[in-house]
Each structure stands twice: as structure tokens, then as C-alpha cells.
Simulated scan of single mutants.
Amino acid sequence: MFEPFSSGYYLGEMYVQPRASDAAAIKRADHEKVNEQLYATGDGVERLDNPLVMKVGTRHFPVVADDDVPGGTLAVPESSVPDDLKFSLPDRREVFLANADRARDLIQYTGWEDEDYA
């Protein structure tokens, strides 16, 4: 789904659509798969619910899991759709996924409230 792109990001392509919610989300199975493949530390005790950070257009989104989102889709809050995408969604788009270190920095910078994410 995602391939290495730079020292801080992976690159993939997903169907991106707006949604009537305050949180960006992908299907729970996709969320767990990405956590397992890209964020696993190898110590045998892995959290599969760490928030992901994805960038679409000019905007970063903390991404949670949601069973109601179709597979292969990133659903972003309608109120937060970047101006450069307003008239082109829904559509397939390049999506950047922050690696574990970059995601941690971005989550802390944006004030994400999940105390267990460290």
C-alpha cells in the first residue's frame, strides 16, 4: 500500500473522500495492517491502534481506525479539506504517510490527546 519516499514519509495512493466527522479515518483492517508493517519495532508487543499521520495536498491529518470507511479509502473531515482539493474530491490521490518518528513529532505538535501514544 505504501512505499518508502523520503527519510520522513512513505508514499501511497488512496481514494480520498470528505466525511462528516471531526477525525480523518481509514478502515480498521487497513489501519492495523499499516501499523503492523510500518511501525512495528520487532519486540513482539505491538500496538496496532497508534494514530497514523497522513498528508494529503497541503494538510496533515491524524488518522484513526473506523470500520465504516471503505477499504483503501482515506476519509477526511469535510471542514478540513485543503483548498487545493476542495473541488476535486472524492478522487484517487497520492497520500504521504509519516514514518513512526515523524508521526510522533507531528502528533505531539498538533496536540493529539491520546496519552498512550508515545
Rank of each mutant, 00 (worst) to 15 (best):
F87C: 04
D22H: 12
Q108K: 13
Y15W: 10
D66K: 14
Y109M: 07
D91L: 14
F5T: 08
E36Q: 04
E3Y: 02
D105L: 05
D105C: 05
G71T: 05
G44C: 05
F2W: 09
E32G: 14
G42M: 08
D101M: 04
A40Y: 00
K27S: 07
V64I: 15
L11F: 02
R92L: 02
H31C: 06
R93Q: 13
K33A: 15
G12Q: 09
Q17D: 10
F96V: 04
P90A: 12
L74V: 06
E46T: 09
R104V: 05
D84Q: 06
F2Y: 12
G111W: 10
A40K: 14
M14S: 07
S21N: 13
I107R: 10
D68Q: 01
F61A: 02
N35K: 03
E78H: 12
G71Q: 08
S6K: 07
V64R: 00
L38E: 14
E94L: 14
T73V: 15
D116M: 04
A75C: 02
S79D: 11
G111R: 06
D114S: 05
K86E: 15
P90C: 11
K55R: 08
S79I: 10
R59Y: 05
A100F: 09
R59P: 02
S80Q: 12
R47H: 03
N99M: 09
F87I: 08
T58C: 04
A40M: 13
K86Y: 02
E46M: 15
E3N: 08
E46N: 13
Q108H: 11
Q17L: 01
G71E: 15
V69L: 02
R102M: 07
D66V: 00
R59V: 00
S6G: 09
A118E: 11
T41K: 11
Q17F: 02
E94D: 07
G8L: 13
R19K: 12
N50A: 08
D83P: 03
Y117D: 07
R92C: 01
Y9K: 03
P70I: 02
P51Q: 05
E3S: 12
V34Y: 07
E94K: 06
A25K: 13
R92H: 06
D84W: 09
A98Q: 05
R104D: 13
L74W: 06
D67W: 00
R28M: 14
L97M: 15
A25G: 11
L52R: 00
F96R: 05
P90G: 06
K33L: 15
E78Y: 13
L48N: 08
R47T: 04
L97Q: 03
D105E: 13
K33Q: 13
T73I: 00
L74T: 02
P82R: 07
T41C: 03
H31N: 08
V95G: 06
V53L: 09
E32Y: 14
P70G: 01
P77Y: 05
M1A: 09
E3Q: 15
D105K: 11
L85F: 02
